[in-house]
Simulated scan of single mutants.
Amino acid sequence: MKLFLTFILVMALHSGKLLADTPQTAAGEWSISLSAGAGKVTTPLSNRDDLQGYLLPAVSYYGERFFIENSFIGYTLFEKQNWYLDLTGSLNDDGFFFELDGINQFGWWDALGMDGGFNSGDGIEKPVYKDIKRNLSYMAGLSFTWLTDLVEVRLSSLADISGVHHGKEHHLSFRKSYHWQKWQFRWHLGTLYKNKKITNYYYNLRPDELGNNPSWFGLPGGLNYFYGVTLSYQLNPQWAVQAFWQKNQLDQDLLRSPLLRSDHYYSRFIGVRYSF
Rank of each mutant, 00 (worst) to 15 (best):
W180T: 14
V128Q: 15
L172I: 07
Y225D: 14
S120P: 06
N47R: 13
F4E: 09
R48I: 01
V164G: 00
L136I: 09
T6L: 00
L259A: 05
S137M: 03
L260A: 06
G95E: 01
A243I: 03
G95P: 02
L259S: 07
G116Q: 10
F66Q: 13
L260I: 06
N135P: 06
F269M: 01
G167H: 01
S33L: 02
G121D: 11
W30M: 08
K194C: 02
Y138Q: 01
M1D: 14
A12C: 12
Y225H: 14
I132D: 01
Y193N: 06
G37Y: 01
Y61E: 15
V153R: 07
R256N: 09
Y274R: 01
R65E: 15
Y84K: 09
E152H: 13
M11H: 15
E29F: 13
Q252Y: 07
S215Q: 06
P237M: 11
P207S: 06
M1I: 13
V59T: 07
R273I: 04
S162R: 01
A38P: 02
Q249R: 13
L192G: 01
K17W: 05
K133E: 09
E69T: 12
Y202E: 06
Q246M: 14
N195S: 09
W108E: 00
N212E: 15
H165W: 00
V59M: 14
T145Q: 04
K196T: 08
L91Q: 06
P127C: 10
I32L: 14
R261C: 07
F96C: 01
W239D: 07
T148N: 02
L100T: 07
I73E: 06
N195G: 11
S143I: 01
W108D: 05
Y201C: 01
V59S: 09
I132P: 00
A111D: 00
I124N: 12
L136A: 04
H188I: 05
I198V: 08
D208S: 15
R186Q: 15
Q246N: 10
V153W: 15
A159W: 11
R134N: 10
D115Q: 13
D50N: 09
D160V: 05
